[in-house]
Design a binder for these strands. Structure first.
Lengths: 208, 208
DNA sequence: TAGATTGTTAATCGATTAACAATC
DNA sequence: TAGATTGTTAATCGATTAACAATC
C-alpha cells in the first residue's frame, strides 16, 4: 500500500473509528450507517464518509457499512495484521508498566527485549523477558528482527539512544521522553509527551 | 482569564513552546527571535508570532522575545502557576508508574490519594501516599480539595468512576482508559490513549 | 419500485503562511 | 538614524461540512 498524501488528521482519527467499530462488533451489530456512527462518535457523517473514502469505498448505498468488514479493513490500513517485535529501553517505572501491560501483545506487538543501564535491574524478569544491559542493545536489535523501540528513558539518554537505534535500522520509535528526536525521514517517530498532555489539562482548568 | 475562542491547535502547541523556551533558559540564552525559534522547532516564524499574539504582545520589534519573560508568561497561560491536588485511580502498572513519577510534582501537581479496588494493595505506599479502597474515593475528593483525577483503570470501570467523579465536582480527568468519557462540558477531559498512539505508529510503519 | 444511504463534488470555514507597515 | 523584528492584515491553503446524484 502506498496511497500517499492522506492527511495526518485523517490518520489520527482511524484508531478511534477502529475502537468504536470493535465495540459495535462485540455487541453483535452487523451494519451501521455513517449517520448512526456520527451520533455515537459526535463527529459529522460527512467526515466519516470522507475519511473512509480516502481508502476506497467500504460501504454500500442504501445499506451503510458492514461493521465486521469495515473493522477488518481499518485494521489492515493501520497495519495491525502484521506482527512487530519490539524492545523497551528503560526499565524504570514507565518501562516496567509498559512491559507488564499485555494488551499490546494482543494486537501483535511483542516485547522481545528490555534494556536498562542500571546493573541492579539486570536479569529482572518482566513477563518472562529479562532486563539486559544497554550495551547489548545494538546487537540484540540486529539479531532479533526488531522493528520498534520504545524509549522510556530521560531525554538526554533518549537523544543519544535514538541515534544508536537509527544506525541499527530500526523502523519506528515510540518516544516517551520529553524531547523531540531528530531522525531521518524514513524512521517513524510517535511521541507520547505525558507532560505536554498534563499541561493541556492544566490549561483547560485555568481557562474553563 | 477568559480569552475564549483560542483554537485547540494553538493550545496544543503551547507545551512544546514551553519546553523549548525552558531549554533556552537553561542554556542561559536571554533573547530569541521568531525566526531563530522557527529554525529550532521546525515551524514557521509566522506561526510562532501568530500563536503568541493570541495572548497579547510578548515581543519587541527589532529585539525579539525575552526568553525568561516569555517562558513565565506561557506558564501562566497554561495555569502552571497554580497548584493542583490530584488522585490516582487504579494502582496497577500504569497507576503505580504515574504515582512514582515525581516530575509532575515539580510542576505543582501533587498526588494526594491513590485508590484501587484490589484489597491486596490497600496500604501499599507509593512515595508516601498509601493505596486506599475505592469506597473512600467520594469522601476523599470532597474533603481534600482535589481537582484532578487520573484514571488508570479498565474502560468499564473508568466510565462508571467518571460519573462518580462528576458528582464530586472534580474539575478535570486525565483519562488513560481506552474509552471516551461522557461528562458535562464544564469538566476538562484530557485523554491519553496509548493504544491509539501505538496504532498510529503501526500505520506509519505500514505506509512509510 | 421506493427508500435509504453512500460516494463525491462543491461550498464553507478555519488555520497557516506571506507580506509589510509599525516600532523598538 | 539604520537595521531588525514584531504585530497584524491579507492571501493561500487545507480540512470540514453541505448537498446531491448515483446506486444498492
Amino acid at each position: 500500500m502506498d496511497n500517499r498524501a492522506i492527511s495526518q488528521a485523517v490518520i489520527a482519527r482511524l484508531p478511534r473509528y477502529y475502537r468504536y467499530l470493535g465495540d459495535l462488533k462485540d455487541s453483535g451489530i452487523e451494519r451501521i450507517s455513517s449517520q448512526d456512527l456520527s451520533k455515537m462518535m459526535k463527529v459529522t457523517a460527512s467526515q466519516i464518509r470522507q475519511d473512509f473514502n480516502n481508502f476506497g469505498g467500504f460501504g454500500q448505498q442504501g445499506y451503510g457499512y458492514n461493521v465486521e468488514y469495515l473493522y477488518d479493513e481499518i485494521a489492515k490500513i493501520l497495519g495491525l495484521n502484521v506482527r512487530h517485535n519490539l524492545v523497551i529501553i528503560g526499565a524504570g517505572n514507565l518501562g516496567q508498566a509498559l512491559a507488564n501491560y499485555m494488551n499490546f501483545e494482543r494486537r501483535g506487538f511483542i516485547v522481545r527485549g528490555i534494556f536498562d543501564k542500571n546493573p541492579a535491574l539486570y536479569g529482572k524478569q518482566l513477563r518472562k523477558v529479562s532486563v539486559q544491559p544497554m550495551e547489548n542493545l545494538r546487537r540484540f536489535v540486529a539479531d532479533n528482527d526488531i522493528d520498534i523501540a520504545v524509549l522510556a528513558i530521560p531525554k538526554e539518554a533518549a537523544v543519544q539512544t535514538a541515534e544508536t537505534l537509527v544506525s541499527c535500522n530500526i523502523k519506528a520509535i515510540w518516544n516517551f521522553a520529553h524531547v523531540d528526536l531528530n531522525v531521518p525521514d524514513n524512521i517513524v517517530v510517535e511521541n507520547v509527551h505525558l507532560s505536554d498532555s498534563l499541561m493541556r489539562l492544566s490549561y483547560g482548568i485555568a481557562n474553563m
